[in-house]
């Protein structure tokens, strides 16, 4: 018997959530989550952004009742994930990207129908929903094809559709577009946004490696690293957290001035890009603080014999904010990090 949900409760709430993997076979103890506090409101698309080993997937596993926390508390739709796991399961859906999962002997449609039955969706609702999802993931023509004959990308799209077949209150998307081609990923991102917009109170918790995906989809983003939440806000506010100024990229012809000498000349830290293989130029990158005029900087460079061939400026990106907050890029592995 399902308990009445507390509609006032946030979709997800964690307090001091911890998860430690004990030392085993010579490997040291791993602290995957070191006291995570999150509050995700209903109707939000919330992103967990962090480098490998930051603890994103561990967090998703705990919230999905696949894993016990070592400490702290986690509630989904107002229900405790440890003591009220069954109530949590009635309200959630899970999609993990980058997998090759699926019952090879079933057809795509059979697999989706089967999961609709597992979730207790009546046939009259399930069948048209499956038809719609097959169109969304562009698998309508392969509906009656066995899963073992699908490519990895097609399996991932089927897996994505499976997550929506129960029309869950709270959907966990763990790297859902990992390995997908650009068009499929864009189509699925648009579908998720439309799905949330059209259904009041539906919530999505997304983990992703793709900054643009997080920026485009998420109402709020938590930046996590080494099991801790370092920042949590809207993408715009996170971008603003990097001090103002302009990001400048110059294409220059240069005899080999070193970065330290240039920094002395123009008064800001600079980074050289790789030489252009055909034009013989290099990219010089720096952030110009507020109040500084670009023209003065360009003149200072020319006085040092550096010929500027092209100028490009851009706004602070989420990636800039991420690097500023975490201290490294998404692709840098965290030593001793969790899953």
């Amino acid at each position: 018997m399902s308990r009445t949900p507390d509609v006032q409760a946030p979709a997800v709430e964690t307090r001091g959530l911890e998860r430690r993997y004990p030392a085993s076979r010579g490997a040291p103890e791993v602290v995957a989550l070191a006291g995570v506090d999150l509050r995700i409101e209903r109707g939000e698309v919330f992103g967990l952004l962090g480098p490998n080993g930051a603890g994103k997937t561990t967090c998703i596993k705990i919230l999905n009742t696949l894993l016990f926390p070592s400490g702290g508390e986690a509630r989904v739709a107002g229900f405790d994930v440890v003591r009220e796991a069954q109530e949590v399961r009635r309200r959630i859906g899970l999609v993990s990207g980058g997998e090759n999962s699926g019952y090879g002997i079933l057809t795509v449609r059979e697999c989706l129908w089967m999961f609709s039955q597992f979730y207790g969706v009546p046939g009259a609702v399930a069948n048209p929903r499956i038809d719609q999802l097959l169109k969304v993931v562009d698998l309508a023509d392969l509906a009656h094809t066995r899963i073992n004959r699908l490519s990895t990308g097609q399996r991932q799209r089927m897996n994505f559709a499976r997550g929506f077949v129960s029309d869950p209150e709270i959907l966990f998307l763990d790297e859902p577009t990992l390995g997908m081609d650009v068009n499929a990923a864009r189509m699925l991102r648009d579908f998720v946004l439309a799905w949330v917009r059209e259904r009041a109170g539906r919530t999505v918790l997304l983990t992703t490696h793709y900054m643009a995906e997080a920026d485009q989809m998420c109402d709020r983003i938590a930046i996590v690293d080494r099991g801790r939440v370092l920042a949590c806000d809207t993408p715009a506010t996170l971008r603003r957290s990097v001090q103002g100024g302009q990001h400048v990229e110059l294409e220059v012809r240069d005899g080999g001035t070193d970065a330290a000498a240039l920094e002395g000349a123009i008064g800001v830290p600079v980074a050289w890009g790789a030489p252009h293989p055909e034009r013989g130029t290099r990219t010089l990158k720096f952030r110009l603080p507020e109040g500084r005029v670009l023209g003065q900087t360009l003149r200072a460079l020319e006085e040092r014999g550096i010929s500027v061939q092209g100028v490009a400026t851009r706004e602070t990106s989420l990636e800039d904010a991420f690097i500023h907050i975490v201290g490294r890029t998404l692709d840098d592995d965290a030593p001793g990090g969790g899953a």
Binding site: T65, G102, G104, F115, F118, S166
Partner: peptide, 18 residues
């Protein structure tokens, strides 16, 4: 093999019924 255990496990059906 099918890597579906986790999806069945987190479904409201539960592993016992499955």
């Amino acid at each position: 093999e099918s890597e579906m255990l986790k999806y069945v496990y987190v479904s409201p059906m539960g592993l016992v019924t499955y």
